[in-house]
C-alpha cells in the first residue's frame, strides 16, 4: 500500500521517470537502444551506489521477490568515482553469476576511492524470482557519478544484457 502510494507520488513528481521511490533513496532504469540504463540516487555517494545496485537487481528480477537472508561482502577500489561504480557493479555481476544468487539489500561504505559493501540475498530460483535476463557486463556508456545542487547524489551507467 505504502509502496503503491510512493510510486504514485514518484509519478507525480518525476513524470513517471522513476519506477520506485522509497524515502530519499531511489533507483530507476533509463533508456538505451539495446540494453538498460541503471541509476541510483541518494543523499550520499554511498547510498547512490547502493541504489544503483538495486537497479541492477531489478534488471534481473523484481527486488521485492528477493529474501535478503545470506550475506556476501565485496571490497574494491578504483582511480575515480566513476570507475569505482563500474568496479562495484562488475563485482556484483560476478558474485551473482558464480554464486547463482540474487541480492535484495545493499549497504555501501565509501572511504575515498575504496568501497566496502555488504549485500544480502538468496539462491536464484526460477520459480520464485522469474529471472528475466542475466547481466553480461557493466559498460562505461552514460557512466556518471555526481552530486546536484540539492545534495542528491546520482550514480548511473548502462549494463549489457
Amino acid at each position: 500500500m505504502i509502496k503503491a502510494r510512493l510510486a504514485e507520488l514518484s509519478a507525480d513528481i518525476y513524470g513517471g521517470k522513476l519506477e520506485l521511490r522509497e524515502e530519499r533513496e531511489v533507483w530507476s532504469h533509463f533508456e538505451h537502444g539495446a540494453d538498460i540504463g541503471i541509476r541510483g540516487e541518494g543523499p550520499s555517494a554511498a547510498e547512490a551506489f547502493a541504489e544503483a545496485a538495486m537497479a541492477l537487481t531489478a534488471v534481473v528480477t523484481e527486488p521485492g521477490s528477493v529474501t535478503a537472508s545470506n550475506k556476501v561482502q565485496i571490497n574494491c577500489s578504483a582511480s575515480s568515482m566513476e570507475l569505482l561504480l563500474v568496479e562495484w557493479l562488475s563485482a556484483l555481476v560476478y558474485e551473482m553469476a558464480v554464486r547463482k544468487m540474487v541480492f535484495g539489500r545493499y549497504e555501501v561504505c565509501l572511504s575515498g576511492l575504496s568501497l566496502s559493501a555488504s549485500m544480502w540475498g538468496e539462491a536464484l530460483s526460477s520459480g520464485k524470482h522469474q529471472p528475466v535476463v542475466e547481466v553480461k557486463g557493466v559498460t562505461y556508456t552514460a557512466l556518471g557519478v555526481g552530486e546536484d545542487d540539492n545534495g542528491i547524489w546520482t550514480a548511473q551507467c548502462v549494463v549489457d544484457v
Partner: peptide, 8 residues
C-alpha cells in the same frame, strides 16, 4: 537489431 529499448 532492436528498434525499441527493453524498458519501452
Amino acid at each position: 537489431g532492436r528498434n525499441m529499448s527493453r524498458n519501452q
